[in-house]
Write a protein that binds this DNA or RNA. Sequence first.
DNA 1: CTTCTACTACCAGAATTTTCATATGCAGGG
DNA 2: CCCTGCATATGAAAATTCTGGTAGTAGAAG
Lengths: 224, 224
Amino acid sequence: MKILVVEDEVALAEALSEILKRNKYSVDAVYDGEDGLEFAMTGIYDCIILDIMLPKMNGIDVLRILRRKHISTPVLLLTAKSEIEDKINGLDSGADDFLTKPFVTGELLARVRALTRRRGEVVTDQFTFGDIALNKSTFSLSRDGQFVKLSLKEYQIMELLIANPRQLIPKERFIEKIWGYESDVEYNNVEVYISFLRKKLSALESTVIIKTARGVGYFLESGD
Amino acid sequence: MKILVVEDEVALAEALSEILKRNKYSVDAVYDGEDGLEFAMTGIYDCIILDIMLPKMNGIDVLRILRRKHISTPVLLLTAKSEIEDKINGLDSGADDFLTKPFVTGELLARVRALTRRRGEVVTDQFTFGDIALNKSTFSLSRDGQFVKLSLKEYQIMELLIANPRQLIPKERFIEKIWGYESDVEYNNVEVYISFLRKKLSALESTVIIKTARGVGYFLESGD
DNA sequence: CTTCTACTACCAGAATTTTCATATGCAGGG
DNA sequence: CCCTGCATATGAAAATTCTGGTAGTAGAAG
């Protein structure tokens, strides 16, 4: 487990490194935002502890650029005050957790453990159910050797279905999850995409079908 | 200033009401999620203090439904533990701030003040610059009596421009603000929408023009 | 002043998403 | 068993967004 510490107060940086090393992590420490970004960009770390106030480039910007470049290393932001503003900005920029200075060692370690554990989970890029597989990286649905490409919305609907197989999912929930809680899209929209998906499922000659629960929503069923 | 307190521990609810009343707020208190939702739906409150753990319906769901129904009253969520999970869920659902129990009176009041102040700002539904006006509720741009309708993306680009008149806005920023920091859309995309907007501006015979800053971005200028 | 190059404008078309209209089907009451 | 009314399915078209290509242009370099 390799951790990057980006913190300009040298004393704090060293203290952090020391604590982490004693807990069997290998640690690199840098002291300004630009170095932080450069090191983080390598993508070799399992976790980055990132101060917000930094010389040359602040932590939020570092984080933003990282995420923009698709570096998804978990980031624990250090905030001086418990400013909600910072927190919201941080979440917007893709932070995974926060820690407010000053903090106790136990809490730091707990959070680092939580973040690296989360990362440890096999982030399956592929869901399967019945005879079909849904692949996130290619946005496609496959059976046997056959593929069909899905559009973004089709994919999102299918993902919600397949991640909860045989479970009834209300249309309301599709809308909240996919269009967001304040959109005004009609239920019919969900119905349209369900219709698209059924067409693609039958094109694949799959035994999987999307069943309707009148007045509520849909669920996946394997019809063999 | 009218505040709604939704909290099932009656003692705490009463204490909160008492503190708030002493500070010149008028307060209604209810003790479960369903009542909370019903009262909140009236939209008459300037702030809602909402516990997460509640009988009948939890606070996150109450909040989610409120936002879905376009009730934008600021909400201060009360969390029992400082669970980051709850916090992130809360932000997703549209919370404006958090407070972890137990808390001190001063902090509560400060946050309520912050939320109601934020709300107090005139949330202008309309931006103007030069001879044009951009209207958020109708998604349209107008000059004199003439209107043109904008698509979502066109509107968002225009809003960013008009909210920062004469200020240079890098293309990078359009992309981060409108498409999100991890999208991979090309700069050309911004250029295309700028092109659409210019067409609509000239259709209105406006004196406002979108100027190009080569290698960087765009800014609004009134050419009279 | 000319040339070169990188950047920008914008068209045309593809893909996706959304809307609308209509057909169909289900469920409960008569 | 048939009606009626509401929910769902789906084709078709409209609207929006995105992509790729080409031509034009500003500004640097010579």
